[in-house]
Design a protein around this nucleic acid. Structure first.
Length: 629
DNA sequence: CCCTTTAAGCTTTTT
DNA sequence: GCTTAAAGGG
């Protein structure tokens, strides 16, 4: 392998990095990179990975470990690195989520735990929702904590908190401690007729951290394996995750690069550690860099974004916009209505015109809400239908489409229908090889016969699809594919499908979605595209939209009741407003309806007194036009 | 049975 | 903060 000289290294893929980004890429110290919306966080990390691998600064055979929160973020980053520095070098780039990282540590080194804290090897993942709460169950069996005056939900939250608030081992000096320890025992080992061994991801992280503390050799091995560590969306790190990070890399030889944005901190209510930036700088003696470019938003929209900094007591800084924009680019409007029906009509009509006159794709428009996308979006969905435009609540599909089994089945279907589609063919082939245990050493003859076999099978599927009469027939085809791969082999590759009815539910959903589309379109490829959402406008919450970008964003309901908790969490809600604002590349529209006559258990009369600062920001920018309908 | 009180929901990911 | 459904009391 020919490595580049660090001095001569240049960013790959025709990318020009701003000065601070280039400094961050070449820095060999622990570093906190504060990067606002559109600064190119993923690109920065991908370029840094390229630099480290191409110059052999990350010395072969050492690796880079990247930790993200969400699976798609981890996958996107891995893909970008492969694109930037090639398949060979990117083999030493390991991209994981926090939870899979922690679970791997626990599962691989489970014997490093003392018997007392060693979970049964076949433990389940805890379910915690309204119907089923395994943690609560464990406490009920252990003898619930003697605390009264709390609602059921608050009490469940408190129990969970008690379980994971501290590092292990549990201090069992007092009565409460004894009950918490008993709950741990039940969850780790299971209780006959009550609960199988069950762990939450928070517990898994605690166990992984304890494991490392007890076994310095494992910690050393981590440092030996990973010379560099990347941490994405660092502002969302919870206290538990931070403890684990410290357990892994405190005073280790690994160099850490954390990337985040304090202005997009909207997960505090979900345990994000508020002082994580300061803690990281102190504990890891980390330096700080700020990126000043916004490659995403048009100049007028960036002007509004900059005004939010003041409200968040953040350093005022001269954010630069991309040269592709001219100074007057960027549209921002507030649309006010007397009722939600009129709002839906006007929004739908305008979207129709955007698509028709500006030739933008439905996927370039996003309808954002603070909460309850089904309720806030209902009327807009039906108004858009009149123009034959589909809008849908993306929450329902986002997670579903990410599932491996869904990807596997859709790829098989596409490959059967469209023999020339290379992307789906490659995934069908590589999945088949994986299932059969083939690798690069498998001889050519065997591989060829596998390819012939798959092609025969895909032809069979194609023919079956042609003669399909009912949803039952489709069910048969889908199960045919699953049985061809072998359901037990699939479960072996993806252990998460072993638990409960998760796999069956996904398959039922897929059949339902596909059939519904097929009835409408009478074409399988279009049906698959529609299930994937290629032609529909996404409706989602601000939280779901984090990390995404759209040409046009329409925020529905800039109203007090949508921000019902504003007075209690001003900063976090202002961040949410900032995230919404900064999703837009060229145009952002906020709507207000003084009467929201939705068939919901919630509000009708709407005000905007409490969230006045949001309107002040928009007014102050002098680029926002308010239109009364 | 009727009136009053209380609780739930509201933003989330992860194998 | 606000609405509605469910539970509780006489």
């Amino acid at each position: 392998m020919n490595y580049h000289n660090p001095r001569e290294w240049k960013p790959s893929g025709d990318i020009i990095l701003e000065e601070n980004a280039l400094i961050s890429v070449k820095s060999n110290k622990n570093l906190l990179v504060i990067a606002g919306p559109g600064a190119g966080k993923t690109e920065l990390l991908a370029q840094k990975a390229s630099y480290l691998l191409e110059t052999n600064t990350c010395q072969n055979p050492k690796k880079i470990l990247a930790i993200s929160f969400k699976r798609d973020a981890a996958e996107n980053l891995a893909e970008r690195v492969e694109k930037r520095c090639g398949t060979e070098l990117s083999k030493r780039f390991v991209s994981k989520t926090y939870d899979s990282f922690a679970k791997n540590l626990l599962d691989n080194f489970i014997h490093g735990l003392p018997e007392e804290y060693k979970p049964m090897a076949h433990y389940m993942i805890a379910i915690q929702n309204r119907k089923q709460n395994d943690i609560r169950k464990a406490f009920d069996v252990a003898g619930a904590l003697p605390i009264s005056g709390l609602s059921n939900r608050d009490y469940n939250d408190l129990l969970n908190n008690r379980l994971i608030e501290q590092r292990l081992p549990i201090e069992k000096e007092n009565q409460n401690g004894k009950i918490v320890k008993k709950a741990w025992d039940i969850l780790l080992k299971g209780e006959v007729n009550e609960l199988p061994p069950t762990l939450s991801f928070q517990m898994i992280s605690r166990l992984a951290e304890y494991l490392l503390r007890l076994n310095p050799l494992i910690k050393m091995a981590l440092g030996q394996t990973y010379s560099h560590v990347f941490l994405d969306e660092f502002q969302d790190t919870t206290d538990i995750q931070y403890d684990l990070l410290k357990g892994c890399f405190y005073k280790s030889s690994s160099t850490i690069t954390a990337v985040g944005d304090n202005k997009q901190r909207i997960m505090l209510w979900a345990r994000a550690k508020k002082d994580v930036f300061e803690a990281f700088k102190k504990d890891f003696s980390a330096g700080e860099q700020r990126l000043l470019m916004n490659h995403r938003s048009a100049p007028r929209l960036v002007e509004i974004q900059k005004l939010v900094y003041g409200y968040l007591n953040d350093i005022k800084q001269d954010v630069k916009t991309s040269e592709k924009w001219s100074e007057t680019d960027g549209i921002s409007e507030i649309w006010t209505f007397n009722n939600a029906k009129r709002e839906a009509e006007v929004v739908a009509e305008n979207i129709k015109e955007f698509i028709r006159d500006e030739k933008i794709n439905p996927r370039d428009v996003c309808i954002l809400v603070k909460q309850l996308p089904d309720i806030y979006g209902e009327m807009i969905i039906s108004s858009l239908k009149e123009y034959e435009i589909i809008a849908r609540n993306e929450v329902v599909y986002q997670d579903f489409l990410k599932e491996d089994i869904v990807k596997i089945l859709l790829n098989a279907l596409i490959s059967a229908l469209e023999k020339e589609d290379t992307e789906s063919w490659i995934s069908v082939l590589s999945f088949s090889k994986l299932i059969r245990g083939f690798d690069s050493n498998t001889d050519f003859e065997k591989l060829n016969s596998l390819i012939r076999e798959i092609k025969d099978f895909l032809n069979k599927i194609d023919n079956q699809l042609k003669g399909l009469k009912s949803e039952k027939d489709l069910e048969q085809v889908i199960w045919g594919i699953i049985n061809y791969y072998d359901i037990n082999s699939i479960k072996g590759l993806y252990p998460k499908y072993k638990q409960g009815t998760f796999l069956d539910e996904l398959i039922i959903d897929l059949i339902g979605f596909l059939w519904r589309e097929y009835v409408l379109t009478n074409d399988w490829l279009t049906s698959i595209e529609n299930v994937r959402g290629a032609n529909s406008i996404p409706i989602m919450t601000i939280h779901k939209s984090k990390g995404l970008e759209y040409d046009t964003v329409i925020f529905i309901g800039l109203e007090d009741s949508a921000f019902w908790n504003y007075l209690k969490q001003k900063e976090e809600d202002t961040c949410a407003f900032f995230v919404a604002l900064s999703r837009a590349k060229r145009r952002i529209i906020f709507t207000f309806s003084s009467d929201r006559e939705v068939t919901s258990p919630y509000y009708t009369r709407q005000k905007r007194d409490k969230i006045k600062p949001f309107y002040e920001i928009l007014k102050k920018s002098q680029v926002v036009e308010e239109i009364n309908y």
